[in-house]
Structures are given as structure tokens and as C-alpha cells.
Computed example of a mutant assay.
Amino acid sequence: MKKRFVLAAMLAAAPFVASAADNGLSYTYVEGGYAQANINENFEDFGDVDASGGYLKGSFEISPSFYLFGSYAKASDDETIEPIEDLTVRLEDDLTQAEGGVGYHMAWGESVDFLAEVAYVSVERDLKLAAHFEGELIDRDSATIDQKGGRAALGVRGGNDRAEGWLKIGYLGGSDFDGNFIGTLGGQYKFNATWGLVGEVEVMDDVTRYTAGVRASF
């Protein structure tokens, strides 16, 4: 009786296992490329932050259902204003974001996976202000904003051997964050089983992040 039950369970699970293996969605990859962060705020006479830089991201499947992932991005923005004659004020804004976590995926059909992720997030922002009068430095100030917290997200990922897309809705919170919902939309065009072009946009409150790069899947 037990053998029949085990055999029936294996036969019932077989279509889901096959779809997870054949849908072309790899959870082991590395990627990197261009990153941009837009922050809607105003430092008196300075406008919104429009920082650009680069990023690295990776994922490693540790079982048929679970994977580890991480990312690192660094971007910077420089703004200069001249409030009065012969006085120049420059603001340097450097942003660094790192993330690491674990994810779960389950086949929802032949070409769609359900996703669930939890991650630790670290965001550091270095601000440097310098004032020059007639070309001579007269004042300098700096500040660092260091925020740490956690992110949880649910989503879907689907596609085929040529292209795929993903959508995730999450929440970022912790002692250093006020708590905000995050929406992530991304996609990949695949040249072959290994190489592809990827793009992603992430929106959270007044912050919008864009990435575009190359992914190698294994």
C-alpha cells in the first residue's frame, strides 16, 4: 500500500518536475552592467539625485526548489550650483547597495514559476559638500547615511528558450527603514542557453532603480 502511495505521488509530481526542468529558467547565473538610481528629493538649491554606476548580481541553485542570490551596486552623482557671484557649491552623492538572501521557486505550469524571496539589504549613502570662493576652498562638510534591513517578496517568472520576464512585489523594512513596498519588473533576451541581455526596473516610494547588463546562465 505504501509503495503504491509513493508511486502515485511520484507520478503526480512528474509534470511539475518536468516543467521546472524544461522551461529554460535557470537559477544559477552571474550578471553585471550599468546601474542608475533616481531619488526624488531636494537639497535646497540642488535638484533630485540622478546617480549612475555599475552593478554585479548572481544566483546559485542549491536544490531543485531553493537558490541563494546576492547583488552589489554602486552609483554616484555630482551637482554644482553658483548661488552668488564667485561662489561655487558642489555636492557629491555616492550610493552603495548590497543584498543577499535565499529564494524559493515552484513550477506553476510549463513556462511559469512562482517565486518567494527573503533578503538582507544594506544601503550606504556618502554625501560630500564643498564650497569654493573665487576658486579657493572655504568650507567642506560630509555625512554618511547607513541603512540596514530586510526585504521579502513574492512574484512570478516565466518564459522560454528565447526570452523571459519576471514581476515581484515586496516589502522593505527594519530598524533603519521606514517600511516601503517595492515593485520589480525585469526581462531577459537570450542569445543561447548561456548568454543573454537583461534589464530591470525597481520602484520604491521616491526611489527608482534601473539596471541593464549581460547575464551568463549555467
Rank of each mutant, 00 (worst) to 15 (best):
L154V: 15
N23L: 03
Y210Q: 09
R157A: 13
D161C: 02
Y72K: 10
Y189D: 01
V118T: 12
D205H: 10
A13I: 00
G196Y: 01
G173P: 11
N42R: 12
S59P: 00
G103S: 04
F191E: 06
R140V: 14
R215T: 15
L115Q: 01
G179R: 00
Q147C: 08
N38Y: 13
T184P: 07
K190R: 14
T208K: 07
I62R: 00
D139C: 06
L137C: 13
V49R: 08
G54S: 07
A143F: 15
G187T: 05
V102A: 03
A37M: 14
I182Y: 06
K190V: 10
Y171S: 03
D146R: 04
G170S: 05
Q188S: 15
T208D: 06
V121F: 02
D94S: 12
R125L: 06
A51Y: 03
S142T: 13
K74Y: 12
A212W: 11
E110D: 01
A143K: 15
G70P: 07
G174N: 02
A37T: 15
D139T: 13
E202M: 12
T194A: 13
K148Y: 06
V198Q: 11
G100W: 08
E92C: 14
V121K: 09
D78H: 12
R4G: 15
Q36C: 05
G53C: 03
E110R: 00
D126I: 09
G33K: 05
G150R: 07
Y210S: 08
F181Y: 14
G135H: 09
L7Q: 14
R125T: 12
G32Y: 12
G199R: 01
R157I: 09
V112I: 04
V121C: 04
D48V: 03
I145P: 01
K74A: 14
Y104T: 07
L129K: 07
V102G: 00
Q188H: 12
V207Q: 11
Y55V: 09
G24F: 03
S111V: 00
V203N: 05
F16D: 05
G47Y: 06
L154C: 11
G196W: 02
G183A: 10
A73V: 11
A163C: 07
A18R: 09
S111P: 00
F177C: 07
R215M: 10
E202V: 14
T88S: 13
G24R: 04
E85Y: 10
A107S: 04
G187Y: 02
F114T: 04
R125Y: 03
D45M: 06
G58E: 00
D178F: 09
D139E: 14
K2P: 15
W166E: 13
A9I: 14
D176W: 03
Y67Q: 03
A131C: 09
Y29K: 04
F191R: 04
I84V: 09
G187D: 03
E164Q: 11
S76H: 06
A9L: 13
E110M: 01
S26Y: 08
I145K: 09
D45R: 11
D94P: 06
M106I: 06
V214D: 11
V49I: 12
